[in-house]
Amino acid sequence: MEHYNMNLTVKVWRQKNSKEKGGFESYPVKDISSEMSFLEMIDVLNEQLIRDGDDPIAFDHDCREGICGQCSMYINGKPHGAWKANTTCQLHMRAFKDGETVTVEPWRAGAFPVIKDLMVDRSAFDRIIQAGGYISVNTGNAVDGNALPINKDKADASFAAAMCIGCGACVAACKNSSAMLFLSAKVAHLALLPQGEPERKSRVLNMVAQMDKEGFGACTNTGACEATCPKEISISNIARLNQEYLVASLTADK
């Protein structure tokens, strides 16, 4: 790939706080290297804004290496931008052409209220995890990890589900603002392992109840979530969650 510099117009959502109404502002940025990451481009723009005495754009980020799930930007109509299986922090500017206008929006969902600009409050996900995304572990000596035989296919499927970084792109992409792909990943990765067995039924029932309480929509299996997920979490996890839910609701003691 040849290196090039570009000038862009960044049309970005600005919103002072969760109460005030926001709106789009357009900013020109110059001499952006094709090797920069998208967040570095925003950093350049923010320095420019600070120099001009303006308020820099608030956005979430942490690892900048595609593993924390913090960077949440809806770029040109796609959560995390146009690249497949990719996070915003790993989106590079070679995905854009000189002279382009780039539209950047926050995740949109009632359950993810905007805190400021591109930052949204995703603590609903934390509360869903707290409702059941854990296992019981006895205190005392740690058990030998290899003492418990686990079927390889199940271990692989569990690991694939455990890849979810809780970024919320699935919610942002879903027409129903449903959190089912996220939830299904969290339920499936524990349901597939013997360690997840003790809380298996209560987990799925409680986590679904919490998801509904947080105000996410109901899943209609459209497939938008799977297409946008940076970790390629499979939509078949949702069917697995449905099965877990059906069995648990029919057979749980209470």
Binding site: P79, G110, A111, A218, T228
Partner: peptide
């Protein structure tokens, strides 16, 4: 009821719509 309820879950819409991965009839 599902349809109406789901529509209420996003009060502010997107300027640029997302349509990857799903068919128009699924939506």
């Amino acid at each position: 009821m599902l349809e109406l309820d789901n529509r209420k879950k996003r009060s502010v819409g997107y300027a640029v719509a997302y349509s990857d991965g799903s068919k128009w009839y699924s939506r």
